[in-house]
Amino acid sequence: MFSIEVSKIKNTALMWFLLIGSLLIPLAVAVSVFEEALKNINIHQEWGSGWYRVLRGSSFFTAPMIMVLIPSFVMDIEYRSSSWKYLLTLPVTRQSIFHSKLLICILGCLFFYLSSFLAYGIAMSVYWFYFPSSGLFDSEFPILQIAILSLRMIISSIAIMILHFGLSLFIKNLIYNIGIGVFGIVLGILTFDWNMKFYFPHSSCLVSMFKSSAGTSAITRYEIISIVLIIISYLSSFWFFRKKFRG
């Protein structure tokens, strides 16, 4: 089922959004790092802090937007081709259809961060090539710090993604889904200051990277709320898909 979902998204705009979205912030960070080095402001760099900059840069708009786009496009492929009615009459269980769609969305999210990290790694290696005194390869690679930062960001991202996954089962129009997503992201940025008091899913990435007290390590209360949202969204959308969804 999963390979079928992969073959469906080839040649779609989603592939390009994922690719461009994942490269955008690492390249912007790399340009900024180069600029600082050329102006002799800060030549010394660390892998962990650079990756933190990438995640912070993504948390404003790019990451939440990609998390809105992935499920919206994956579901829109079926709506646009009126193929739900075909899929639901095939000798395949509803559970496997639902889970293969969810899996492709989660893997899309992981692909986004993985290719971001790869782009960041390549950009910083190029930087080290021009500025060997930056000390990038002198210290130990902070694998735990990078993993925890990424995990926090991924949990917050999946919360947005799964919320829109469920929403796409009700709202059968790509533009409306994206519109709701953009509205949520903008609202999240505007209400950023309130967000440690009130959980707002679309600003979860932003709060996770900028406001959580744990700084660059450990999972915080905010990510735990995101995990609860993920579980609730999963269970309710799965129930709806099995019992009520008609395509």
């Binding site: 089922m1 646009r80 081709s81």
Partner: peptide, 29 residues
């Protein structure tokens, strides 16, 4: 349902794929 083939209303086709790709998806399913 494995013994039934159906065409309901308009054909359910992925327009961004070729005819063979469309059929291959069903073959795998």
């Amino acid at each position: 349902h494995s013994r039934i083939g159906s065409l309901i209303e308009t054909p359910s086709l992925y327009e961004h794929l070729s005819a063979e790709d469309n059929l291959n998806i069903s073959v795998k399913l």
